[in-house]
């Protein structure tokens, strides 16, 4: 239980510190130095467009090779576990290795992308 709480907390702090650092650095920058970059960076395109955006479902499905999460409980759809399937037969892969109910209900590979 401690691990469950500790890891998300550490990760949260790391991201917040990163975001805060970027913000602080931004304020410290000379505006003149950022002008050429402003002409070249299209945040709207880079973040949210279906084709090039880093934070869109279209990119998740196609861009980087991570499998989408379909949330099943066996095989590729949920990743490599032996949890009983809807037919009450255990997944063929791998042989259930633990005592409680078979195995994990977890997913495969996440999305490429930003959750």
């Amino acid at each position: 239980m401690k691990c469950k709480q500790f890891i998300p907390t550490v990760i949260s702090v790391a991201v917040l510190v990163t975001a805060n650092g970027l913000s602080t650095a931004a304020e410290a920058q000379d505006p003149k130095k950022t002008e050429p970059m402003l002409e070249q960076i299209d945040l709207r395109e880079e973040i949210a467009s279906p084709v090039a955006g880093e934070f869109t479902p279209a990119g998740n499905a196609a861009r980087s090779g991570w499998q989408q999460d379909f949330g099943g409980t066996s095989g590729t759809a949920n990743g490599m576990d032996g949890f009983p399937t809807a037919t009450d037969e255990p997944s063929a892969y791998p042989a259930p290795g633990s005592s409680d109910m078979g195995n994990s209900p977890n997913n495969s590979g996440g999305s490429s992308n930003p959750y």
Partner: peptide, 11 residues
């Protein structure tokens, strides 16, 4: 953020 070279995103 940073004059347009950075952004903070929530989704």
């Amino acid at each position: 953020l940073a004059g347009g070279s950075s952004a903070f995103i929530i989704k």
